[in-house]
């Protein structure tokens, strides 16, 4: 059972920097690359992922002693898929414009490794309270990274933030930043920066 006896606050904090799902664990790269073309998308996507992660982790942590080890993956995926479909239907019914701009990436949260990874690595071994804190921390960490990447891409590639024009008319949009290549450039630079900072922190 709970092998590490970390403090409860650590379970929350670790997702933001030390075990950040994007920058450190390199999980969930596909949606990170694909939907970070505008801040609005990033907000919607992080909320959808946070909802699915929270519900799945709580559910699985509660059931962890009942789930047979041999078929745990199958059970996890069914539970995750149920919550993902619920959030997709909810968005389509009550937030149609957001749902349109996120396109297929909401249903694709099912195969988002962040959720599968946290469920397998954490909530199948830890209690409900810890799982809630873990999922919240991971969601914040994920959301922050999405926010930074999409902010950079939207600003440089489109001259806007949240759809509002912030760059003056002198600004020429760098189209490449909106294209997939821009996602790789931004994510790569960010990963490099994060690694650099972590190594500095370790030394000091």
């Amino acid at each position: 059972m709970a092998s590490q006896q970390n403090s409860l606050s650590y379970e929350f904090i670790k997702g933001i920097w030390k075990e950040n799902p994007n920058l450190v664990a390199l999980l969930g790269m596909c949606p990170t690359l694909a939907i970070t073309t505008s801040l609005q998308n990033a907000v919607g996507m992080s909320l959808a992922v946070a909802f699915c992660l929270l519900c799945s982790e709580v559910f699985i942590a509660a059931l962890r002693n009942l789930i047979p080890t041999q078929v745990r993956m199958a059970a996890f995926i069914v539970i995750i898929a149920a919550f993902v479909t619920i959030s997709d239907l909810y968005l389509r019914a009550f937030q149609p414009s957001l749902s349109k701009s996120l396109g297929p990436f909401v249903p694709l949260i099912v195969v988002n490794c962040i959720i599968m990874g946290r469920v397998e690595a954490f909530s199948s071994k830890n209690g409900v309270i810890r799982s809630i804190l873990d999922s919240l921390g991971m969601s914040v960490g994920y959301g922050l990274v999405l926010f930074v990447i999409s902010g950079i891409r939207e600003l440089i590639g489109n001259g806007t933030l949240m759809g509002y024009r912030v760059m003056g008319s002198w600004w020429d949009n760098w189209l490449v930043m909106i294209l997939p290549a821009g996602a790789f450039l931004t994510l790569g630079s960010l990963l490099g920066l994060a690694q650099f900072m972590q190594s500095k922190l370790k030394k000091s």
Binding site: V71, V78, I79, L89, R92, P96
Partner: peptide, 27 residues
């Protein structure tokens, strides 16, 4: 194992059927 998986799938399916019926008119 069989019972557990069946149970999880049935519950998930039921939940989705309910939610899908609930949101369909809005969509």
């Amino acid at each position: 194992i069989i019972l557990f998986l069946t149970f999880v799938s049935v519950v998930a399916g039921g939940l989705l059927a309910y939610f899908s019926a609930y949101t369909a008119p809005y969509i």
